Amino acid sequence: MSGTNPHNESLSYSGQPEQSPVYLLVWDAPNIDMGLGSLLGGRPDAVHRPRFDAVGRWLIDVARDAVQDGAVPAPEATVFTNVAPGSAEQIRGWVDALRNVGFAVFAKPKLTEDSDVDPDMLDHIRRRRDEGVLDGLVVASADGQNFRELLEELAEEIPVTVLGFHEHAHWAVEHETLDFLDLEDIPGVFRAPLPRVNLDSLPDDGAWLQPYRPLSALVR
């Protein structure tokens, strides 16, 4: 591969194939939110939502370290998200903020239980691979299990990282060919430490593990 593509605005997300090398990050927003919610015992608030500017700076550094044949791959980042009916106005500011940081956003209506964005993430990864421009890949997902087969295949040729939470991604933490990075290990990604209490890191005097939902939900 040759050439560089340092400006994300020149990346091709539809239409013409990309021709310059990229270091790709795909972010599974529904799954990351679910993982955060399980760690927090409730819906993430502003303090415990990831800062995408910090993620972007980290990806830039990773891409700079991935020089091949004198070419630095362009960092490319896309957040994949569902939009539930009636929620467009609630997330519009978040989507605009992502785009201002330099992230692309793939938004898909959440019409049925099967309207997940996982297939779209896989399609985009395969597109970059088939274009011959994929120099590295980061998949941000709480556990990454839905991407395992493709990631293991790609890891035979390029560096592949699962970015998630070690509580949910034991398979990736212990994997021989994939790298794993806990999201909280990215500098500045959270405004405050996550209140992570789990069976692997219990304090000596014990800890309360909050229910994920109220018991009354059983009869709804």
Rank of each mutant, 00 (worst) to 15 (best):
L122G: 08
G37Q: 13
R51C: 03
R43S: 13
R148I: 11
E89F: 08
A140R: 00
V67D: 05
L151C: 07
D33N: 09
A66E: 13
P195L: 08
A46P: 11
F103K: 07
A192D: 15
F165S: 07
D118K: 07
N5M: 12
D182R: 05
G42A: 10
L178K: 02
V67I: 14
A77S: 11
V139D: 01
N100L: 15
E153M: 04
E176S: 05
R127A: 02
P17R: 11
F80G: 08
V197I: 06
Q90A: 12
L24T: 15
K110T: 08
Q16W: 05
D120A: 08
D28L: 03
A74C: 11
L202P: 03
L98V: 02
H48A: 06
D123A: 09
P109I: 06
E113M: 04
D135H: 11
S216C: 04
D200P: 01
D200I: 00
D69R: 14
Q19W: 06
M1G: 07
Q19K: 14
P44Q: 05
V22F: 04
N5E: 10
G37K: 07
H7D: 15
A207L: 07
L218D: 09
L36Q: 07
A88P: 02
P203F: 00
K110P: 03
N8R: 14
T177L: 08
D69I: 01
E152C: 03
G206E: 03
A88E: 15
V26I: 13
A46W: 04
F190P: 15
V133G: 01
F106W: 06
M121W: 01
H7A: 08
W208N: 08
G42N: 09
D118N: 09
V79K: 07
P211N: 14
N146F: 04
R196F: 02
D204T: 10
H168D: 07
V55L: 15
T112P: 15
T112S: 15
V160C: 02
D65E: 11
S201T: 07
L39E: 06
R127Q: 13
H124F: 14
H166Y: 06
V189D: 12
F52S: 01
A192N: 14
R191A: 10
V197K: 11
E18V: 13
D96P: 00
W27N: 09
W58N: 11
E76K: 07
V67T: 12
D118F: 06
A88I: 14
V173Y: 08
L183I: 10
V26A: 03
A84G: 10
V83E: 12
W208Q: 08
G15L: 04
T177V: 05
T177K: 10
L163E: 05
V72A: 01
E176F: 01
A54Y: 08
L151D: 02
A97N: 12
V189T: 04
R220W: 04
P195W: 04
E176C: 01
W58D: 12
H170V: 02
W58Y: 15
T81K: 03
L194Y: 05
D179G: 00
F147P: 01
Q68C: 02
V139Q: 00
L178I: 03
E9W: 13
D205R: 12
D120N: 09
V160L: 04
D69V: 01
A63Q: 03
F165E: 09
G206F: 03
W58S: 10
W94A: 00
P17F: 08
Q16T: 11
A192P: 15
A104F: 14
N82P: 04
L183Y: 03
V101N: 05
G41E: 08
S10D: 14
D135N: 06
G206I: 02
Q145S: 13
